[in-house]
Design a binder for these strands. Sequence first.
RNA 1: GCGAAAGUGGCGGAACUGGCAGACGCGCCGGACUUAGGAUCCGGUAGCCGAAAGGCUAUGGGGGUUCGACUCCCCCCUUUCGCACCA
Length: 871
Amino acid sequence: MSDYKPQTIEKKWQARWRESRAFEVSEDPDRPKFYCLEMFAYPSGHAHVGHVRNYMIGDVVARMKRMRGYNVLHPFGWDAFGMPAENAAIKSGTHPETWTLENIAHMKGQLQRIGISYAWERELATCQPEYYRWNQWLFLKMLERDLAYRKRSNVNWCPSCQTVLANEQVVNGECWRCGTVVTTRDLEQWFFRITQYSDELLEAANRLGDWPEKVLMMQRNWIGRSEGARVKFALSTSHEPRATSHGIDVFTTRIDTIYGANFILLAPEHPLVQAWSQVPGSEAFRANMQRFQAQDRTARMTGDVEKEGFDTGRTAINPFTGRPVPIWVANFVLGEYGTGAVMGVPAHDQRDFEFARKYGLPITVVVQPASAQGSGGAGSASAQGSGGTGPAETLSSDSMTESYDGPGTLVESGEFSGVPSAEAIDRMTASAEARGLGERTVQYRLKDWGISRQRYWGTPIPVLYCDTCGMVPVPSDSLPVELPRIAEFSGRGDSPLAQVPEFVNTTCPDCGGPARRETDTMDTFVDSSWYFFRFCDPRNTELPFDPDKVAYWGPVDFYSGGVEHAILHLIYSRFFCRVFRDLGMTHLDEPFSRLLTQGMVLKAGQVMSKSKGNVVDPDDMIEKFGADALRLYVMFVAPPEKEIEWTDAGLEGSWRFLARVWRLVDQLAETIGGEGIPPAADLQITDAERALRRKTHGTIRRVTIDLDPRVHLNTAVSGLMELVNELYAFCGRTECLRFGRDGEDTATVGAVESAGTVAVLKEAIESLVRMISPFAPHMAEELWEMLGHTGGIVAAGWPVYDEAVARAEEIVVPVQVNGKLRGRLRVPAGVSEDRLREMAVADPAVARHLEGKTIRKVVVAGGRLVSIVAN
RNA sequence: GCGAAAGUGGCGGAACUGGCAGACGCGCCGGACUUAGGAUCCGGUAGCCGAAAGGCUAUGGGGGUUCGACUCCCCCCUUUCGCACCA
């Protein structure tokens, strides 16, 4: 007899796993593969339970799959570039590399103490030149294919981080990392042409069946495809600067409303606006324009600013009506979307409506809602947009209080009057195309990915600038361009690399003349966009990875991580996967087959964070209750996708459960661990023994399905708890164990006479120990050994259930009368429906509720329930 | 404002395709064993009525479909998340 001492056994098994490289794998075409991955970690210093929950979830899946015979790749690494390291350097003088490596060492220890079954041999850190040289390699490939390009543009700038941010990294106008309000700068920047894949990324999202719908929705919204038309409004005045004489292109999704386009609105950033502001005598114009441009960018983006505009004094010709319309500049028109110009249709667009009312511009109704006449029905036909209250009625520009944005029938629209709007869109677009005034187009919200960062701790962009040759890519064979070791970090000025002359000054590989290196580094999201491929072949020195290895392991079968990456990492990775595909490195379109977004761990209703001082350090919990109890608790307390509220009491409960399992197995180990015990299936057994077998096999079935495919880890644990409860009850009844009869011990082992009892106990307990091992791997290994097995629990495999044993011989069929439960029938499984009907009506408890009534109907539902209707 | 998801005991949560609501755990109550028990084992625990048998009411609220609804449909309320002048 021994007590459950997790600290001792956990150390023992962790050492064994390490020494035997238990989780390293190689390609084996004869076995089904399974690539299980959790989003790798930013080495911030210490992992709290909120972080490690994710790794635990993946580990349960990986361990279970391994036991089920899969060749499981379960690697881990470090997203090791990034600003906190550099900020630490500025603050404390520790070099980013030192800071990063120390953090990695600590966090790796934490993960090992939790017993996550990683193939540590494949560990990688993105700050290693062996890794980031492949970022550079890929960059050069993308440059060749025009997927990487450089342009000057207005970019998001975080004043606190002192760097540029990609659109995806600006959240509500604030920096995703530090929350500082983002401003703009006009800079030369490198971009990745992710928009080349807009349609594919969008369309393929519909086939990612094992991704949470929420994430797919976020991606669809982010890509923001909208179909419409570009239409040209010719300028009606001729005294303009030369380049502007062609006209103004607007983008609209509602060309059917063009007869109501009574004005044109330009973004303050529109080139024409810029040009007009330079015309002599335009001081007032210029002042207005600059005022708009100076308005808080966030407010302008989010609509928090009052809609304002001013008249340019110019007019354009509406290509459908042929009439001149005034051109205004409006602060709510976005320069970066579409053409930066829109047609103003006040009757059918709420913003234009407000604008028109404010400045006294004319409103013309050109779409009437499908009228109620004829349809006779109520609400169904009513306007979805707005247009006052009540059912659809004829709109009039005088009485409208808001725009009508819905579909309808065209009026006042020349040859298109009377045409329904959907059809009108097609016909009018075709008409514009035929006359050379426009074309059908698709607009996306998605922009190219700006990857230049004015920081040190990242991948150097492998290009240089030569006075004679211009921009020159660094030749592939001289990669990597290594980060120079910088001694001091001021946090001021340009890119830190620009301050290192040895780095900057180089010679041009083409002409041999003097050249300067690019001093910006890459966005760290580049690193994480393909690391899952590198794990398949992490030490390759010739290529980012061997295509054959990725062909074997890819795609990632199970990927888990936080939702916060829904439109960052997860969209970039989908993009990179396609780039590698188009380079011929993989056949995969999508990198991740199944995605699970795990919930956060809260403490006192708040997200754990160092600044709030509410972090729970796994090491503290391991010290008290052991890693197995910690893992079990986190898995049991809620489904993986849901957030959980941390409670110490819950953890203690899980510890108690494990101790309960320990006592059970420990006390019976000698009885059931011996040699020559025949399988339970071969023996004549008692009813009680048969009931235990049924529970055992039923539990295997349930837990197996809960884990795979459902990944309902919490209910899998409760299934195991039920089996343990059943085992205790069985042992008490059969006196295998005598509880509470001994002053010193909690239980004593009774004499077990029956071979059947030994056999069913052995079957139940060995199944239990194997099934609990993904959750509590250390204890399971220890118990497995205690039961006399050698070779480890993974080799033992996952238990298999026998459907015939799991099926109950006798079932309880509830009987309802008029929907209320009135009786229960104990019947042999598989009894006929007719027999069930007879028995139900005859049952005394049921009959009482049928007195004085006539039975109208008796429904037998799937042989599992009888429902009687009577009155 | 638009969109999505969710609302179940004191708490975390179960209920797989419409079929016994509350599995499992926490907490609480009781019993056993004990010098003692915050250990362990056993039992109880949605609410209301009732001594009990039993009955009634219950899955945010209100309607509906159905023999039968936590589950499907409509309206409303609340919470969380995402988007937020995208033309």
